[in-house]
Every structure is written in structure tokens, then in C-alpha cells.
Computed example of a mutant assay.
Amino acid sequence: MKTILCVDDDQDILDTFKIILDGEGYNTVCLPDPAGLFQTIGQCRPALIFMDINMDGVNGLELCRALGSNPKTLDIPVIIISSDPRIDSAIDDYGATDILLKPFAIEDLLDTVDYYLGSQIVSRSPEESL
């Protein structure tokens, strides 16, 4: 079973990720405080990371850059999820693998996971948005 790490200080977003991704057969690990990011990655060894930009004084873009420069984590795809306008620079300036704009449709989330992890995804209707 593949593990997906979701890093966001909004518990409602984390709960949503957990419900959706666990329902698709993934082991979803939610991290509300990015201070323990590298320790959590070492423990759960995620195949994919979703990360917000603005987290209680922590810049997710800088964390993304740090993940990409660390030999132990540089191969893990990092998807930045945010409504912050800085998301447009996430790939070119911070090394994010991809971006997902908030609010996002469940189908877009699952399509992103499918693209990076190659799993079988159940089709969702466009009306199912978060």
C-alpha cells in the first residue's frame, strides 16, 4: 500500500484528504505541523507529498525547496496545494513537482495522484468539489 503525506495546518483539509485517499486504498498520513516534516517522512516513507504554502508561519514553498535539495527526499513528488498566488512560482522557483489550486475538485485530486502513482482511480463526477 502506497503512503501519501499531506501537510497542511488546516485540519478540515487534512480530514478531507484522509477520507478521499484512504477510500482509494492509500495509507494517508496527515501532518498539521510542518516542524516534524523530515522525521515524519523518515517514518512513513511517502510515495507522494501534498503540501500547503501558508502554514502557521511556515512557508511550504521553502520546505518544498528543502525536500528537493535533500538526497533522501529529492525523489518524492511534492504537489503544492494552495489558493496563494505564489503557487504559480512553485514549480520553476521552488522545485515542486506539480500544483493543485484550492478549492479543487475531487476528480482533479485523484487524477493528480493517479498520474504520479499510477494507481487505478474510480471516476468521480465534476460536481464533487471541495
Rank of each mutant, 00 (worst) to 15 (best):
P34G: 10
E128H: 11
R45L: 14
I87Y: 01
P126H: 12
P32D: 12
A66G: 02
I19G: 00
G23E: 00
M1R: 09
L109F: 03
Q11C: 06
V29M: 09
L48M: 11
K2H: 05
T16P: 00
I106A: 07
D10N: 13
Y116F: 13
L130F: 14
L101A: 11
D52C: 14
Y94G: 02
L117K: 03
V78D: 01
E127D: 10
F17C: 04
V7G: 05
D33V: 15
I49F: 04
T3P: 02
S89A: 14
S83W: 04
F104Q: 07
L100N: 01
Y115H: 13
D33I: 15
V113S: 02
N54M: 15
S123W: 06
R86L: 15
M55G: 04
P32I: 13
D114G: 15
L63R: 05
G95W: 04
S69D: 00
D8G: 10
A35I: 13
R124A: 08
D84Y: 05
L5N: 06
P103S: 12
I80V: 15
Y116G: 07
S129E: 07
T112Q: 08
S82G: 09
F50C: 07
C30A: 15
N27A: 13
D93V: 12
I53P: 02
V122L: 15
E24L: 06
P103E: 04
S123D: 10
D98R: 15
R45V: 12
D12R: 13
I20A: 06
L74S: 14
I4T: 04
L31R: 02
P77T: 11
I76P: 02
T112A: 11
V7Q: 06
K18I: 03
I76A: 07
A105I: 12
V78T: 07
L37K: 08
S119A: 13
S123C: 09
N54Y: 04
M51W: 01
S125H: 08
G36Y: 10
Q43L: 15
S83E: 10
G42I: 10
F50V: 11
I49D: 01
Q11I: 15
N27W: 01
R65M: 12
D108G: 05
L31D: 03
L14N: 00
E107N: 08
L5I: 11
Y94D: 02
L109R: 04
D93F: 07
S69F: 05
E24M: 11
P46R: 11
N70Y: 01
V7S: 02
S89N: 11
S83Q: 12
L110R: 02
M1A: 09
L74F: 06
M1Q: 06
I53W: 02
E24R: 08
L31G: 02
P85I: 15
G60N: 08
L117W: 00
I91K: 03
E24Q: 15
L31C: 06
I53T: 08
L14M: 11
Y94R: 02
I13H: 00
A66Y: 00
N54D: 14
V7Y: 03
E24N: 13
V122K: 06
I41W: 00
K102P: 05
L100F: 05
I41G: 03
K18M: 07
Q11L: 14
I49H: 01
G57A: 10
Y94W: 08
I13T: 12
P103Q: 09
